[in-house]
Every structure is written in structure tokens, then in C-alpha cells.
Amino acid sequence: MAVKWEWENATAGAVAGFATVAIMHPLDVVRTRFQVNDGRISNLPSYKNTPNAIFTIARSEGLRGLYAGFTPAVIGSSISWGLFFFFYSRAKKRYSGDEEDKLSPGHHLAAAAEAGALVSFFTNPVWVIKTRLQLQNPLHQTRQYSGVYDALRTITKEEGWTALYRGIWPSLLLVSHGAIQFTAYEELRKLLVDFKSEKAKTKDVEVLNSLDYTFLGASSKVAAILFTYPVQVIRSRLQQRPNQDGVPRYADSFHVIKETARFEGLRGFYKGITANLLKNVPASAVTFVVYENVLKVFNLTRKKD
């Protein structure tokens, strides 16, 4: 039964991840382009703000531009959410035995961090390909990737398989993002369940509804973004395609930090955060609403069995 429950968590997470990407992908493209544009790269267009970026991309590149990198985004998000919920539920069960309600914030933090680290190792190549495809635009001087397979083949041929793990260290640091989000989500969820249960004179977790899950998903995401966004900028800049001579624009994370601080200041580490908030706060709300409701369906099915 335990394994079945873990796979139900994975399935719910994968479905939620797919729904999130399908709705919010254009904002992800905008965010990535803002993140890597340090004002010194000639083959990247500049945008005034998020609405201007969406309008400009739609006008010059069409729907294809707004959905650049959509396939790896769908694959990566579905796999990431599925694996995350799978590893997260396993970790919580290992820490709690059969008494999950007694988990402390530290246990939730550890479980989320453990799940995030495992997911990073599995999915980093997908995110490298997604970033490269999203940055392709009409100003590119080098041969563009024709798709996911061509990107994978070209990267491994020209740069070696290790290039698929560029940005892995920031990705591992971004484990804190999931840890912060899930800890905030779990603790807020407990408070909300207790509050609504007390009003309803019951201890049933079913007192929560989709509006509650929307609030929980959105508020926990805001907390995580504010703390970890600079690391996302560092990762995106590391995952760019090398210059025409084959030399990466940034050697490592420290090089990104030094150059960004020198030429752009603190603002450089928060480029694209508006698009990021617009994408991820509603997306997180959608994800958790879908996830919790898919689990409810599984629970009803199990009860009937």
C-alpha cells in the first residue's frame, strides 16, 4: 500500500506539473531572456518590461517564440514534479513512520531538500536544453537548434556531455527553494486545517477546498522566490550557449556573481523577477490545487475498493 501511495503522489505531481507549464510557459520564456541579458550581449533582444517582452516576441517570432523550449519544459516539469512528490512523500514517511501529522518543520525542510537534490541530478540536462531553446531568437548568429534532439546531439558533440550539467551547483542550491516552499506550505496548511476544523467542529482535513489550496500554493511560492531568485539568475547565465568560438560566457558561478555585481549591481540578480512572480505564483497555486484534488480522487477510489 505504501508504494502505491507514493506512486499516486508522483502521478498527481506530474499531472499538476504539466498543467502548470501549459498555462504559464510564455512567461517562462520572458523570464529566461531577462535573466541572461546583462546589457552586453549583442545577440539578445532587449525589452522594456514583461508586457513589452510578450508583445515583442509575439510580433517578431510568433507563437513559436512564446512557446520556445515548450517540449523540454513539459518533460522537465512533469518529471520534476512527479519525482519531487514521490521522493518527498517517501522521505516524510521515513521520518514519521505512520504518524505524518507529527512531523516538525525541520522534518518537512529535510524531506523537501532531499527530494529537491535528487530531482536536480535527474533533470538538469532537460533544463539546459530548455534554456538554450528559449534564448534562440532571430538575432542569433550561430546555427539554431531545430529541436530537443538536435540540441541534445549538438551540445554533446560540440561541448561534451558535461555541458548538460552546467548550472548543477546553483540547481543544488535551489533545493532551498523547494525546501522553503514546501515547509511554508505544510506549516500554513496545518494552521489553516486547525482553524477551519475548529470552526467546523471537526478534525477532518477535507475542510480545505480549492480556494484554500490556491492561497497556500501562492503564498508559499512568494516566500521561496524572494529568497532564492538570484540563484536562478546565476543558473540561467551559466546554461547559455557558448560564444561562436566555443567558450562559455561565464566560467563558473563565482564568475557570474563577480561580473553581475560589477556591471549591474544588485538589480542584475533580480532581472526578470516580475515575469517570474507572474508565472510561478499563479502556477504554484494551480499546481497545488490540481495535486490536492487528484489525491482526493485517488482517496475516493481507494475507499470504494
Rank of each mutant, 00 (worst) to 15 (best):
225 I>K: 04
225 I>L: 12
212 D>K: 06
117 A>Y: 02
118 L>N: 04
179 A>T: 13
215 F>T: 12
163 A>Q: 08
111 A>C: 06
164 L>V: 04
186 E>D: 14
165 Y>H: 03
113 A>L: 15
102 K>F: 09
215 F>R: 03
172 L>Q: 09
185 Y>D: 05
125 P>Y: 08
178 G>C: 07
231 V>N: 01
96 S>E: 11
114 E>K: 06
140 H>I: 03
124 N>Q: 15
174 L>T: 02
155 I>F: 02
104 S>Q: 05
184 A>D: 08
220 S>L: 01
100 E>D: 11
201 K>Q: 14
179 A>C: 07
230 P>A: 04
151 A>S: 15
124 N>A: 08
112 A>V: 05
144 Q>M: 14
204 D>L: 02
155 I>T: 15
141 Q>A: 12
175 V>M: 14
97 G>H: 04
176 S>I: 11
193 V>M: 13
179 A>V: 05
123 T>D: 04
186 E>T: 03
196 K>Q: 14
175 V>A: 14
202 T>W: 07
121 F>R: 00
198 E>G: 14
207 V>M: 01
101 D>Q: 12
194 D>V: 03
130 K>C: 13
229 Y>V: 06
217 G>W: 07
208 L>D: 03
108 H>W: 11
104 S>D: 01
178 G>S: 10
108 H>S: 07
226 L>C: 08
162 T>H: 13
190 K>T: 04
111 A>H: 04
125 P>E: 08
124 N>R: 08
109 L>E: 04
111 A>M: 01
143 R>N: 12
191 L>T: 03
170 P>C: 03
185 Y>N: 10
170 P>K: 06
97 G>T: 05
158 E>G: 08
214 T>C: 14
137 N>H: 00
98 D>R: 12
232 Q>V: 14
198 E>W: 09
129 I>D: 03
229 Y>T: 07
122 F>V: 15
189 R>L: 07
118 L>Q: 07
104 S>E: 09
105 P>M: 00
96 S>N: 09
193 V>S: 06
135 L>C: 12
101 D>W: 09
220 S>E: 05
225 I>G: 05
151 A>Q: 07
